[in-house]
Simulated assay, not measured.
Amino acid sequence: MRTLYFDCFSGISGDMVIGALIDAGADPLKMEEELKKLSMDEEYTLSWGKVIKNGITSTKFDVILTSKSEQPHEHSHSHEHEHSHSHEHGHSHSHEHEHSHIHEHEHSHGDVLHHHHDSRNYKQIVEAINAANFNESVTNMSLAIFKKIGEAEGHIHGLPLEKVHFHEVGAVDSVIDIIGTAILIDQLGIETVQSSAIPTGSGHIHIDHGIYPVPAPATLEILKGVPIGSNDIRSELATPTGAAIAAVLAERFGSLPAMTVESIGYGAGTKTFENHPNVLRIIIGETQ
């Protein structure tokens, strides 16, 4: 069985997953081409490249929103756009959430704004995925991950799934992170996925509704039934999108299975920590 293992020693987010898959040998240009089926490509550009995180060469993947996706910038962000406050070293770390990669632009350039796409709700995203005519595997993976996040948000806010309006899944970059992950996993011919326990981090974050504990309510809801790892990092390590990718795709959680390793990939997170590399490792190989 061709198996992919998520080694989440520093958490998991959508952009870390895609970075790791590219690093392990998946083709980002084919993914970029396939994503055009969504007819959203005027709203973003993709970038990826090698970075070094605490001595480990890894791949950083970014979704950069274009001015075509411009909307009035608000400073309140939903769960996926959380500011992680870390006090371990007496200062606040940069954002770890999936979408931190555009924040450095957004505060300094008027033309690159993070838009919230309030008009894209769960139902519209499902329709967009179905209309895109991806292959069955990519469609099913994408829909299952979105459903997991949608149900968690609906549960927290007391809404039925079809009424869930939520920025983090409506935002273009989350759509890309989730569907891009499905495209690359399909491209790599993965038959089964396993994962380590998911460390969530600790501390507090700012979201739309105020200051919340880590893990954020949506993330914790998504990780019901999934082993959560503990560590003392005061920062958000698992985002809702990252948690949902692992929760939906992994058939079992535990230590690395016996396998003949074929390829390894490191996907970089946005933050840098003092004592360990903030990367997601994926290991692909044949299991019995």
Rank of each mutant, 00 (worst) to 15 (best):
W48Q: 12
S58G: 15
H105M: 10
A238I: 02
G267A: 05
S119M: 06
T59F: 02
N130E: 15
V193S: 04
S137V: 05
D7C: 02
T260N: 15
G229H: 01
E274W: 08
I185T: 01
G154A: 05
N130R: 10
Q194T: 11
E136C: 09
H107I: 08
E98V: 13
H73Y: 12
P257A: 04
T241D: 04
H83C: 01
L223T: 11
S119Y: 14
L223V: 03
L188M: 15
N278K: 03
M141A: 09
E96C: 11
V51Y: 09
Y122P: 03
L249M: 04
I228F: 10
H95Y: 00
T287G: 12
T260L: 15
I264K: 02
A218G: 06
D23N: 10
T192D: 00
V226F: 04
V138K: 05
S67H: 08
S174P: 08
F134P: 04
H93D: 11
S195Y: 03
I282W: 00
E32G: 04
D232T: 11
H206V: 14
G242N: 14
L29R: 15
F61E: 07
S84T: 07
S86F: 09
L65K: 04
V175F: 03
M31K: 02
S39R: 03
H81W: 12
S142T: 12
S76G: 11
D7Q: 01
R2S: 10
A268T: 06
P199R: 05
I283T: 15
H97N: 13
I228V: 15
I185P: 06
G25R: 07
L113G: 02
D41Q: 12
S10P: 13
S76I: 14
T272P: 02
D118R: 01
L249T: 07
S76L: 12
P227E: 11
G180C: 13
D173Y: 09
S10L: 04
S92L: 00
